[in-house]
Nucleic acid binder design. Sequence first.
DNA 1: TAAAATACGACTATATTAGTCCGATTTTAT
DNA 2: ATAAAATCGGACTAATATAGTCGTATTTTA
Lengths: 132, 132
Amino acid sequence: MVKFSKKLEYSIISLRHISNAGNEIIRVRDISEKYNIPHDLLAKILQKLKKAEILISSQGINGGYTLNRKLNEIPLSELMMIVENTTTIAECFHNDDKTCTIIDSCTIKDPLSKIQTEFENILKNKMISDFV
Amino acid sequence: MVKFSKKLEYSIISLRHISNAGNEIIRVRDISEKYNIPHDLLAKILQKLKKAEILISSQGINGGYTLNRKLNEIPLSELMMIVENTTTIAECFHNDDKTCTIIDSCTIKDPLSKIQTEFENILKNKMISDFV
DNA sequence: TAAAATACGACTATATTAGTCCGATTTTAT
DNA sequence: ATAAAATCGGACTAATATAGTCGTATTTTA
């Protein structure tokens, strides 16, 4: 199946919420409670976004997150890479498979990677701001 | 994650093999052995393709499968629907979720379904013959 | 009539995704 | 100082989806 993940959804919701809050610092709990997203799961996703320098975090009793980049400069493909580690829809089925019996005559790989490219282009041209 | 399935791969391999064989009847075992695909799993996939009238089957000792439609008239999207039951990449995250708290202000749905449409267009324009 | 093929539902195994738990660290108001 | 409340982060469990297996029935023909 071909489907977007919850992590991606939670990321988009969070980025939108933080963006709408302006300069206000947003806590994980704020988002978690408002949208019924599991706190610990969301916390980890936001940590990833911080590591990727999309968010800025501050710890301590008044801590939370603010935006570090503009949403119209973050393509969906980048967000997917960060939270899902991959956007690969059509990786070669056999590249890493030592037991592959058809690798020499593989005519599937090329068309699939072409689909991959077209798909990635769509994702690259959708900015997170498009979802806000 | 966003990925094609083994079932789709096995389908493409099988259709290519059967197509290349001309009018010859191809047994599940022929394909299974040549490409190291589990026999029972492949058998079910080909049964689905038969139900979808992409293949014609004959039972009995000399039975097997032949093509019923030309591969350049079968879009990848159709094959995905048959073997995976869906091509939905960006179904609304909340449509079926009665507990959804943001459905009224959901600004994610529309852009996602636009991506869905673009993605489906790619799949519709790729014919199985492109993989042969 | 036996062999060999498809037909098909039920089952098990594996992989991926989603979510939980718990302790550590950091910061700040009191 | 220190307690409260936040992020940080690894290890774990649960749920779901995909992949693969098993057993039996039916069909056909040499």
